[in-house]
Amino acid sequence: MSSPSLALPQDAEPVLRPQPSTWTVLGRFLRGKPLATLGVILFTAWVLISLLAPVLAPYAPLEQDIANRLQGPSEQHWFGTDQLGRDVFSRVLYGGRLSLPAGVMVVIVAGIIGTGVGALAGFIGGWFDELTMRATEVFLAFPTIILAMAVAAALGPSLINAIVAMVVVWWPNYARVVRSLVLGVKSQEFVEAARALGVPHGRILWRTVLPNCLAPAVVLATIDLGNAILVFAGLSFLGLGPEPSTPEWGRMVADGIAYFDQWWMAAFPGLAIFTVVIAFNFLGDGIRDALDPRLRK
């Protein structure tokens, strides 16, 4: 394939460019993308807030103060207090400790299951592929929130069950994407070369095919995180998430419905969900632009 003139002369020293650091790569990616930059900043802020919640929060998230219930935002309570006199600001800060890991868990577990199933389907092909793809179609025939709601209700409301329900709903997307990636990689020459060398099937899949499919799958997962957090908040809003007293954003908005005039009870936790989700969407938008050469300026 390659013409001989392109081959390196025998005595040439290979010129190794220093591997750019993660920061350099990130900086290069973010250059000229104000929205993606804002996304990274928002996301980093939320990670820090979640980690430091015990330090930052002026009150304990479960601490009740009935005498000061339903107070509007003030110097003592920046985001006001709820129906039990709990500090909304502190509860919002603590909420990140649930929503972020829940979203990440869903995407990681669903990503692993989906990648496994999709890779096998694409690699083995035949009836197994056919069967898996029909199965994913059935899952995708239900709108996300509805299927997650049915599964979560069947398992019984709890934090873990909400995550399990979402994984059940989430993996087929990854299976379909990874399958199509594997199909694309499978027919490449380096895979054929590995086959010709007599490398066992399992090893080809694991060492040769999969590594070439992972990057797009990881990108998909990053873009997907915001959505996962949004649906998790929805389940929680429906009462199918962690138990009622837990400081969880969706749940807090649901509590706020009954106290319509105390707008701060629902407004601030909702704002938290919104800022986290939009951070991922800003970032995802930047990634999509960077990946699609047609959309480059």
Partner: peptide
């Protein structure tokens, strides 16, 4: 338009409903 459309896909609908009514 791009920013507004991103807002649209990032807002929890139940929150937006409450805000709109309010």
């Amino acid at each position: 338009v791009r920013v507004v459309s991103l807002f649209g896909v990032s807002m929890p609908v139940f929150w937006l409903a409450l805000l709109a009514l309010f």
